[in-house]
């Protein structure tokens, strides 16, 4: 008995020794990211300050070109609407996921995850078909008395599609937060005389705030930088920031101007991440998203 314990302990110590060596394993990937991810992003910021001339010319130009500020505001508003809408839609769904039997929960999880992973292009194409002139959505709206409403090419059309694309990013963090809530707290609130709706509003909802926060920030950030949906379903007349950035790079090779817009976008992203990191952080939410595969 004692000999095995001692042996096990010494083996245990041996097992801990190579732990230090495993640290080197992170090097290749770190090097890859530094060269092919962080360096490129740094050059974008750098070029925004140096091309064509050194200084803040690109940034003052953004303020005065009459378009960029409008586009930026439109993008921020759209991202807020998308994040708020997904929150409202995803909350009951995630709540139900914690309440149903395991088998039903598995089905609900697959329903969230499959579109999450199935072809973004296919989904955007589907929205293109649904929203086009003469498409199902226009006909449906016609039936209920809104004649001639075509979503394709409008901010509303982009918003609807983005909500669908972003839903899983809201459901998963919400679910992982709600899963942690002890249902007995609601019983306790009930036994203290709170009606069910008040117990829900005063106990359950506040406890789910971390999930709401990570989901909201995640969707907000991802919507800001989203390109495919606005490019396919939006229009140049009411473009979002990603369209303007792409246009400047691919048509004009204006890395300075596009870089300035990109840097603003990065700044907003980092600001949101910083604010949220004080309450838990979207990295954790993403971890949750992939853990629940």
């Amino acid at each position: 008995m004692t000999t095995t314990t001692i042996k096990a302990r010494s083996q245990g110590r041996e097992a801990t020794r190579p732990r230090g060596r495993a640290a080197w394993f992170v090097l290749p990937a770190t090097a890859l990211l530094l060269v092919f991810f962080f360096y490129p992003i740094a050059t974008i910021v750098w070029r925004s300050l140096t091309e064509p001339d050194a200084g803040f010319g690109n940034y003052t130009a953004l303020l005065h070109d009459g378009l960029s500020v409008k586009v930026l505001v439109r993008t921020l508003v759209t991202a807020l609407i998308v994040a708020a809408t997904t929150l409202v839609i995803a909350y009951p769904y995630a709540y139900a996921m914690t309440k149903v039997r395991p088998r039903t929960r598995a089905v609900l999880t697959v329903i969230v995850l499959l579109p999450f992973w199935t072809s973004l292009m296919a989904r955007n194409f589907a929205w293109y078909m649904l929203e086009q002139r003469g498409g199902p959505i226009e006909r449906f709206l016609g039936l209920i008395g809104f004649d001639g409403v075509v979503l394709l090419g409008t901010v509303a059309g982009v918003t609807v599609a983005m909500v669908q694309v972003m839903l899983p990013f809201m459901v998963l963090p919400l679910y992982s937060a709600m899963e942690q809530i002890d249902p007995r707290l609601l019983d306790a609130a009930g036994s203290l005389g709170a009606p069910r709706w008040r117990a829900f509003g005063r106990v359950y909802v506040p406890l789910s705030v971390p999930g709401m926060l990570s989901g909201f920030s995640l969707v907000f950030i991802m919507t800001l930088g989203f390109y495919i949906t606005p490019a396919l379903l939006g229009s140049p007349q009411n473009s979002l920031i990603s369209q303007v950035i792409s246009e400047r790079v691919s048509k004009l090779l204006d890395f300075g101007g596009a870089g300035a817009l990109g840097t603003v976008l990065l700044g907003v992203t980092l600001l949101v991440l910083f604010i949220v990191s004080r309450f838990g952080g979207p990295a954790r939410a993403l971890g949750g998203a992939v853990t629940h595969d």
Binding site: L33, F37, F38, P40, I41, T43, L218, G225, S246, L286
Partner: peptide, 24 residues
């Protein structure tokens, strides 16, 4: 820091990543 570094490509705005990589 390494852990957060690894997650960065997921969170950074897609369009910025695209033009950054394209640029270099």
């Amino acid at each position: 820091a390494v852990r957060q570094l690894m997650m960065a490509p997921m969170i950074m705005p897609g369009i910025v990543v695209a033009i950054a990589i394209y640029g270099v």
